[in-house]
């Protein structure tokens, strides 16, 4: 399958997407932000169609929208119940906007399906380069802030008590989350990028008990998911997202059963 240029591009892109999503996902899950990452994907959809409408790239539109809204959410109320309510209100608005932007733009509707559901053929060499740069940026941020970010994400109150600058860490994290959503959506689609951002990490949480091990398991599961998805999509011509989400969901339930089995032994 690597005889095809587009498959090589898709393979490189999805490898990096899986690494960033698996890595960032560990922190999404430990910060209880699965819901926010879901909303950000919907906002990303609106951003992408906005990008198409005004003639910048969908990726740029996505980054613009997700960055602005994640920072807005971060400075919004810190009380989580109120935040969830406002987040879901915002997300409904953005889905509406996304659909409006798309219908106003002259692009064909296949473009819309690509953004929403993902596609392995849509990606160009130039886009792959942009993806790589963004992914490497995200990974670097995590290497630099690994220790304080782990402390804050796995024990927010303890991190505050120890005098860490938790506000700054939170903003840093939200920026990387916005970027991961935007790059992930290029292959997996904005409707399902949150699958990669939450399920592998949630599975990891059930089977290992340290931050580095969770990262390894989570990245591993997302890599297997996207590679398997690409391969199966290539030979069956079915949507890649279908295979990825099926794999991650099965892994999740296996992880959960493993945990329950261990608890009863």
């Amino acid at each position: 399958m690597f005889g095809y240029e587009f498959m090589r591009e898709a393979f490189i892109a999805s490898t990096f997407i899986a690494i960033t999503a698996g890595l960032v996902g560990v922190f999404v899950v430990s910060r209880n932000m699965s819901f926010l990452s879901h909303t950000l994907s919907e906002i990303g959809f609106a951003g992408a169609s906005f990008g198409i409408l005004i003639g910048i790239s969908p990726l740029a539109g996505m980054i613009l929208f997700t960055l602005v809204s994640s920072i807005a959410v971060g400075s919004l109320s810190s009380e989580s119940s109120r935040r969830e309510a406002s987040i879901s209100a915002i997300s409904s608005l953005f889905i509406g906007l996304g659909i409006l932007f798309l219908s106003l733009s002259s692009e064909s509707s296949s473009y819309a399906t690509n953004i929403l559901f993902g596609s392995i053929v849509g990606i160009s060499a130039k886009e792959v380069h942009q993806l790589l740069i963004l992914a490497i940026f995200v990974i670097l941020i995590f290497i630099i802030f690994y220790k304080p970010l782990s402390f804050d994400s796995f024990d927010h109150i303890g991190a505050q008590a120890a005098g860490l600058k938790t506000k700054l860490l939170s903003i840093t994290f939200l920026i990387t989350l916005a970027l991961s959503v935007s790059i992930g959506a290029q292959i997996v689609g904005s409707l399902l990028v949150f699958v990669l951002l939450t399920l592998p990490a949630a599975t990891a949480k059930y089977i290992v008990h340290s931050v580095p091990k969770m990262i390894i398991v989570s990245v591993g599961l997302s890599l297997i998911g996207v590679w398997l998805g690409l391969y199966l999509a290539f030979i069956t011509n079915w949507p890649v997202t279908f295979f990825i989400s099926t794999f991650e969901v099965i892994a999740y339930f296996l992880g959960l059963s493993y945990k329950n089995w261990r608890l009863s032994h």
Partner: peptide, 8 residues
């Protein structure tokens, strides 16, 4: 909560 006591 996933972390072991030592990791915490």
């Amino acid at each position: 909560y996933p972390l072991s006591i030592e990791q915490f």
